[in-house]
Design a protein around this nucleic acid. Structure first.
Lengths: 248, 248
DNA sequence: CGCTTCGTTGACTCTTTTCAAATTCAGTGG
DNA sequence: CCACTGAATTTGAAAAGAGTCAACGAAGCG
């Protein structure tokens, strides 16, 4: 279909931007060489669905660039985002035949893919991969549990403040900047996607963003860029007891 | 303190009721023997806190009998359950020094514990343990994501119906009964604990249970035992598209 | 320039929460 | 066995927060 569907040039793992955070992070040179042989790149356009829930999973892989979401939809159309995948995040579930959630590219996106079978075999022979995957999965589980607190107990205002803080933290982590957190953050999501992340309607998202702006906690530069006026205030509004401690 | 604090008699792993579901499920006889040497039992009374969020984690382990919860609490007291641990479920996070959530026994409970350090070392030398732990963690992550849909998008009535269905499924799984699902289920939680699970208040929980009863979807036998009048109806009320398919 | 998508705002509705009181239940000691 | 006590649960009435429906404005694109 689109030119973006075509496979990308093959990048050497050593030069890969996510080399030290992805599932391959702990691999030695020789292990990397074996991965190199079974990997391939795939690109997706913004809006394109990567995997449908219920589909047979042919591959697993890592997000190299761009952003993807994991979502669940009820028959009547209510939708909840259950994962936000940034570069280095892993997609797929070794040991399961079909996908449990929809995976969608929300921006143009490049994935480093492995056919599922060879990857599973390699996991058995390469403890470094399984170890790293376990570590990443445990981290995701912790993140999911924080997210559950947000969904179950936070007010709309706290949800918005939390989302901004989460995104600020995550992309500070990605850029390996240990700076307390950027003063301005790009929201990679539409209002509707934020609503799906937060368990709100898009109208409520819009209203609460306006309210935080009105109250001087943030300011906007266009619709997508948020300037964080007062980071401590934002953390306070987010209602997290874990103080503004940096990162993941 | 209490007599229950004392260590239990040492049960042979071969006779352990959770032998085939817990983190040791894939272990061979010799691997089991090594686990046997480092394990010890601990008992907790109903209501007792097993681990406080932020505490140094000295041990990890499996729930052998009884029920525990993972919860998060905000400064102002709002509380969200983020894990419900039944027999065979794993407690603790290898590779992390401090606990991220409170773990509490909601019934009298027995755990099979391993000091964290020896267990971590054993994970490195015993792929079967790491493999099983990865599998269990991925399952928990999937469960957490279903839970997120519940918290973010379901109505109070759907939440209650879902909870009853989830508990029915989980203890059918535990008893290895492949029967479609018991006709009656014991709710191992108080109304308040259910509320913390579902992101509701206890009053709303009570009201919705009454409503389901009034509408003939369930009936109660005492406060804790639910008779499921019509399982298909219950699944429908729960709003899950995944049809009443059995188990985990 | 018109079209479509995205975002904001307003008015009103409705579900769930909050606050308060009544009721049931389980365990204790008489 | 029964009355008593405190915890758990149910129920009611009022309030609040978020949702729904609808209109309007802004930005990107052919």
């Amino acid at each position: 279909m689109s030119p973006l569907q075509d496979h990308f040039v093959h990048v050497q793992c050593g030069d890969c931007p996510i080399r030290h955070r992805a599932v391959c992070a702990r691999c030695e040179t020789d292990e990397l060489m074996r991965l190199e042989q079974i990997k391939y790149y795939r690109s997706f356009q913004a809006g394109q669905t990567i995997i449908w829930s219920g589909d047979r999973m042919e591959f697993v892989g890592s997000v190299v660039s761009g952003i993807a979401t994991l979502t669940q939809t009820m028959e009547d159309g209510r939708r909840q985002m259950v994962g936000l995948l940034l570069p280095s995040d892993f997609v797929g579930r070794p040991g399961r035949a079909t996908a449990a959630f929809d995976v969608t590219a929300t921006t143009d996106l490049v994935m480093c893919c492995f056919r599922k079978k060879p990857f599973e075999e390699m996991m058995l022979s390469t403890p470094h991969i399984a170890q790293r995957l376990l570590e990443m999965t445990l981290d995701e589980l912790d993140a999911a549990r924080e997210w559950m607190l947000l969904l179950g107990r936070k007010t709309a205002r706290e949800k918005i403040a939390s989302l901004i803080a989460i995104i600020a933290r995550r992309d500070a982590a990605l850029q390996r900047k240990r700076t307390p957190v950027a003063l301005s953050v790009d929201l990679p999501l539409t209002r509707e996607e934020m609503a799906d992340y937060l368990g709100l309607t898009l109208e409520t998202v819009s209203r609460q963003i306006s309210a935080l702006k009105r109250d001087g906690v943030i300011s906007l530069e266009g619709n997508r860029r948020v300037m964080i006026a007062d980071i401590d205030r934002l953390m306070e509004e987010a209602g997290d007891d874990s103080d503004g401690g940096i990162l993941v």
